[in-house]
Design a protein around this nucleic acid. Structure first.
Lengths: 336, 336
DNA sequence: ATCATTACTGGAAACGTTTCCAGCAACAAA
DNA sequence: TTTGTTGCTGGAAACGTTTCCAGTAATGAT
């Protein structure tokens, strides 16, 4: 069943059928109705390959996810997927590990699948213009902003929270409760990442409140998963380092740390308060319920797609959308 | 840069280039090398749409996920994705909610995207042959087996655990520790689901050990997420129903139940033991660590793809692959 | 010397769309 | 009556591959 068959059956030309399918205005109501009837009757769906071929593009948008073990991404992925779907795009997802380079992956996908655009979910945030130059389709960074070198770069589109400020906010929640000995649980993997920005916020908060910054209180772990955070925290505690509060840059990490603290006989929040950022589902169900700055995941997903769609459509210029978190008070912090 | 350009530059015909690209045997070593050199030099990638068009198929495999809120799926999705990637397929994922019908979704995707095959991840397990007949490409059920009516149906391919038996195993862990008043936390949504099978295992275990089956001890919740399980358990406790152990059919649910128990002042495992099935990452980090029958997620993903690839290739017949769980002892059970 | 076989090659049709272009009818303006 | 203009339509080229078919040259068998 092809467009030709539809044309033959409805007694019009192939081009007319095509016009009907694509909602072109210059077709008479009569023809349109006739053709639509036939299409419905045979529930015809146009061949995508043929369309893509002649239009020299596809309807595919790539989603490149770094570190899917981060539960936080699950909701965002879902949100991105449904938004793409509604907008008529097809999502082609690729998850990459710590050894892979997302630009290389994106470039090969772009050529291979004729992508219309790309969304990067999680990842480094220090792509150089040269690296990015290999991409020929629009792209949007989700959950982070590209900031090559030291300066914020406004040539790229993104949806993210203000990592540094939000981290500062989180740490100030602890400071406001009287904490002075605050550890930070961050990721060590790359320097210009979300982790780094949140770490900077941590430092800024300490400095703003005239608290000493002690690098021995910085717990560095490999990745955003629970295991690494658990092990790093455990190691730090075994080294004898002590603190009255921990700021973890992600819920996943906080959960890992919680176990380490527990196993070391350190009660949360009795002996040690804990706050983090993200707001994943499980953080609300553990004991004690985690206090966390929740990110608006659905919104972030949708906005990423909106932005990308505008870039693909040619309308709209680059913009860095900043969304804000809201504190979900659990029971993992106490006054000191 | 098209195949024509390659042909022109290397001084052969288009058809020869095509043969080289597709590794056809009947092309001279000399021509092959010449063409390959040009392809490499211009790092040419053939246009997928054109290939798909003429071959009247694509390289896409659909992954239809029901209930992505189930953290358990994250690892499987990852595993499926990398296996598909290695095998040269493109994964097109669609998540569906409780109101959507996966067969309808699959059928439209199949036609729309010219899928080669479909993997269903999670879902009802009572598709009738008539329903499934609308699909014209091979498909594999992952995490469940289709069993229309009462009998196991061997006309379909699947990778799953033996839900009934595994559930029985789990409940027997509780019984072995002296528990007699065992609640079951299941999903109420559909009757022929994984939930139902695991429930049957629960009943079977009770009967095998001459324990009464009391329907008031069955906690039914809407979906596999923590919130529903939490609320359902809370409600049940408020009704005054008591038990010394809970068998939850999924880790996600167990975590929801744990909070409800905690809030009701019921200590796990002191007052109530808890076991479930899945083995999601976070279950190892909560307090008490959850005892659970872990499923081999990576293996399940890979096997699903293997199976599908064989079906697509035309080799291999339908088979129901059963994988087994292993008990990960946490601290959520105690002897009574 | 002739014929059959083999190994390779090029030409061309096909896949199912979109889109450009030309054409036709109807109608309004001159 | 002629000349534009508008609204709609059909024909045909194009998109970039794969694959069938016919053809050539070289080799081997008779």
């Amino acid at each position: 069943m092809t467009i030709k068959d539809i044309a033959r059956i409805s007694g019009v030309a192939v081009s007319t059928v095509s016009r009907v399918i694509n909602n072109h205005p210059d077709v008479s109501a009569e023809s349109r109705e006739k053709v639509m009837a036939v299409i419905r009757e045979h529930n015809f769906i146009p061949n995508n390959s043929a369309r893509d071929l002649v239009r020299t593009k596809s309807d595919a948008v790539g989603l490149i996810v770094r570190g899917s073990q981060n539960t936080f991404f699950v909701d965002i992925i879902h949100s991105i997927e449904s938004a793409l779907d509604e907008a008529g795009y097809t999502m082609v997802m690729r998850q990459i590990g710590s050894n892979d380079d997302e630009i290389t992956c994106a470039a090969s996908m772009e050529r291979d699948k004729r992508l219309l655009g790309i969304i990067f979910l999680g990842g480094r945030s220090d792509y150089s213009p040269e690296e990015l130059a290999v991409l020929t389709v629009p792209y949007v960074f989700c959950t982070f902003t590209n900031s090559y070198g030291t300066l914020k770069n406004t040539n790229y589109s993104s949806v993210s929270i203000a990592d540094e400020e939000e981290a500062m906010k989180a740490v100030e929640e602890l400071i406001g409760r009287g904490h002075k000995d605050i550890a930070a649980l961050i990721s060590a993997s790359d320097d210009h990442s979300i982790s780094q920005l949140r770490y900077l916020g941590y430092v800024k908060a300490l400095k703003a409140h005239k608290l000493p910054v002690d690098d021995s209180r910085v717990i560095r772990c490999g990745s955003f998963n629970m295991k690494d955070a658990y092990e790093a925290t455990k190691k730090k505690l075994e080294e004898g380092v002590r603190f009255t509060a921990v700021f973890a840059i992600a819920d996943n990490m906080a959960i890992g740390a919680m176990r380490a603290l527990r196993e070391a006989g350190i009660d949360v929040p009795g002996d040690c308060s804990l706050i983090s950022i993200d707001g994943i589902e499980v953080s609300e169900y553990i004991d004690p319920m985690l206090s966390t700055l929740t990110q608006p995941m659905k919104e972030m997903g949708r906005k990423s797609v909106e932005q990308l769609a505008e870039l693909i459509g040619g309308t709209g210029k680059h913009s860095q959308i900043t969304v804000t978190t809201s504190l979900r008070e659990g029971a993992s912090m106490r006054n000191i």
